[in-house]
Design a protein around this nucleic acid. Structure first.
Length: 605
RNA sequence: GCCGAUGUGGCUCAGUGGUAGAGCACUCGAUUCGUAAUCGAGCGGUCGCGGGUUCAAAUCCCGCCAUCGGCUCCA
């Protein structure tokens, strides 16, 4: 399982200073939770109009949500922090008090805290209060530290203010959430801040710009990435790799259009259930209207339906790198991880009910082997994304859902895969097995996904002819190992910190001519390398060697080769790799062989 | 979509009412150089867009757009 990238990387310091998540330390649970109350007390002292709501610990700190008419500013945060230090230094005791529901209600009403009253209504007995000194208390189950002396006044900081809806519901009032971080020692706080700065340097938005992989243009529109030559090399290397893996496993490539009739999406149910995520319809009426596709399945289904299928043809595996468009809410867009136009490594498998389990396992096996090849084999968490039985956003019968969900459960249990359940995370037409990764700043993203679907075959009336000549309904598996190329590349950039393994690097080798007189020789070597399929180039800047090396290092080019008089005379190259530094002079032939082998085996030079 | 912050040359940033600055990049010149920045000169910005206040706006006000941090949403 992936530990947070925020605290993951620098091995040298990681041993010296451990930065525990709250969930792994009881002490930190108490400390961070107490901090949120101290903050609430400070806020109410400074801003008497502020009403308290909830304030839990989070993995590296805490937050508290307030209802307050004016927005809190940076300045306010400083004042609140100061007030918190005062409270901490007073060494106030935290005293637990158990009260009756009526008593709790009486006291909350006296304080005129409507949110607390709502919370109380949902609480089980016994009702407990925590007093922080003489004149402030909060409805809370605890536990906390004994007194604020246990909090270090120099081991916390207030980080940001954000809007947050009461009870996480966008129909409710919007509150102001203040985020803070807190640690046992000031050294931990310093280290935490340092590692966050480091993590920001790995942000794919920053590295993507620095390495020239992709851009966004205001003139094109938000959430619509444009891929530069280097970024496109990266994309197509990934595509080619997966295509090869899929061919090995009996997938058949197909190509389908970017738009389709509204009717198609009415049949699939997307028009009814997914409308607000579609770009607006083209055309004057729904009968004649077209929409940009937000998913590929209805198109692949048409290919399935184009002829009468025999059980002998199944499983039929139709694969497409399909570009889809989804009108994501403006506030949701960000870098490559959430965009409005992206390419799914999609495939739809049409199988008999008997084939379902086996085929599902094969898909999971493919996904695992793909992640292993990308060195992401243990960077994900597997989520069983099931429906929320109380929600009405799903289509299909209870029976179909039961069958699908249990098929997924059987598969992960069979594989002994680490997993957790996400109730309410299902697609509207079926449950999913999702592969979740975290980015440099510890945010979670779904990449790969496998979905079992009894619904769309039903809606589209899919059939095959069984052994006994009867017409039967196939089951569909939707699956995308990468999820989307955009999001995958975003995550990859951050996982590698821009240092792609040789086989993925947009530029694999850069030749550095010592003087202009060596350019011709360098160009000749590059031509040879290119013939062999190696992505090589010559540094034509005319800069001094030190500068050229610096630029190549900053550009994270995995292999550099210096060519000067010595190399020219002996038909050799002085190789320097990013990973190992100078390797000395090697014959050109040897370099060619070694680099070819390294790329083919996904190894390093 | 909601709350808040931000938006100055290709990039990173300084400039808070009086005619726009630095470093890097780029171009040119000199240097012909051996493993993380050679020296010098030059080019380049209607300060996100639109409106307003003012004798005067990058700077103050309003609207919009985009980005960032969250929330909500997410096939």
């Amino acid at each position: 399982m992936s530990q947070s990238n925020v605290v993951a990387p620098p091995a040298e310091t990681a041993e010296k200073i451990h930065l525990p998540r709250t969930s792994e330390s009881d002490t930190l649970k108490r400390i961070r939770h107490t901090f949120s109350h101290v903050m609430a007390m400070a806020v109410q002292k400074l801003f008497p109009k502020a009403q308290v709501t909830i304030g839990p610990w989070i993995e590296y700190g805490f937050y508290y949500d307030f209802d307050h008419p004016e927005p809190f500013t940076e300045k306010d945060l400083k004042a609140i922090k100061k007030e918190m230090i005062k409270i901490i230094n007073k060494g106030l005791p935290l005293e637990r008090e158990e009260v009756s529901r009526e008593e709790a209600q009486r006291r909350i009403e006296k304080l005129q805290e409507p949110y607390k009253l709502e919370i109380l209504a949902g609480l089980q007995d016994p009702i407990t209060l925590y007093h922080l000194g003489e004149d402030w208390w909060d409805l809370c189950a605890g536990p906390h530290v004994e007194t604020t002396k246990a909090l270090h006044p120099k081991a916390f900081d207030l980080e940001s203010v954000a809007g947050a809806y009461w009870r996480g519901d966008a129909n409710n009032a919007q509150l102001q959430r203040i985020y803070g971080t807190a640690w046992e020692t000031p050294e931990q706080l310093t280290e935490y801040k340092r590692r966050r700065e480091e993590a920001k340097k790995r942000d794919h938005r920053r590295l993507g710009k620095e390495l020239g992989l992709f851009i966004f243009a205001d003139e094109v529109g938000p959430g619509l990435p444009l891929w530069t030559p280097k970024g496109t090399l990266l994309r197509s290397t990934l595509e080619d790799f997966l295509k090869q893996e899929q061919v090995k496993r009996g997938y058949q490539p197909v190509v389908t259009p970017h738009i389709g009739r509204v009717d198609l999406f009415k049949t699939s149910g997307h028009w009814q259930k997914y409308r607000e995520d579609l770009f607006p319809m083209m055309g004057d009426s729904e009968d004649e209207g077209f929409v940009l596709k937000a998913m590929n399945c209805p198109f692949h289904i048409q290919i399935y339906k184009s002829s009468l299928r025999s059980y002998r043809e199944l499983p039929l595996r139709l694969a497409e790198f399909g570009t889809v468009y989804r009108y994501e809410q403006s506030g949701e867009l960000g870098g490559l991880t959430r965009v409005r136009g992206f390419t799914q490594d999609d495939a739809h498998l049409f199988v008999t009910p008997e084939q379902l389990d086996d085929e599902f396992l094969k898909v999971v096996d493919l996904i695992q082997s793909v992640f292993n090849a990308l060195q992401l084999g243990d960077a994900f968490r597997a989520r069983l994304s099931f429906r929320d039985p109380d929600s009405d956003k799903y289509i299909g019968s209870d029976d179909a859902w039961e069958k699908s969900q249990s098929a997924i459960r059987r598969a992960v249990e069979h594989l002994g895969m680490n997993h957790f359940e996400g109730i309410g995370e299902a697609a509207f037409y079926g449950p999913k097995l999702d592969f979740i990764f975290t980015d440099a700043l510890d945010r979670e993203w779904q990449l790969g996904t496998v979905q079992v679907d009894y619904n769309l075959p039903e809606r589209f009336g899919l059939e095959y002819v069984a052994e006994d000549g009867s017409r039967q309904r196939p089951v569909m598996i939707h699956r995308a190992p990468f999820g989307s190329l955009e999001r995958l590349i975003g995550i990859l950039i951050e996982e590698y910190a821009g240092d792609f393994p040789l086989w993925l690097a947009p530029t694999q080798v850069r030749l550095l001519p010592v003087t202009e007189s060596h350019v011709a020789y360098a160009q000749q070597v590059v031509d040879q390398l290119r013939l062999q399929g190696v992505r090589a180039e010559v540094d034509l800047s005319g800069d001094r060697m030190g500068k050229m090396i610096r630029n190549s290092e900053k550009g994270k080019i995995p292999v550099m080769a210096v060519v000067g008089d010595k190399e020219l005379e002996s038909n050799s190259l002085s190789v320097r790799t990013r990973a190992q530094g100078e390797l000395g002079a090697l014959p050109v032939d040897e370099v060619m062989t070694r680099i070819g082998d390294a790329i083919a085996s996904h190894g390093s030079f």
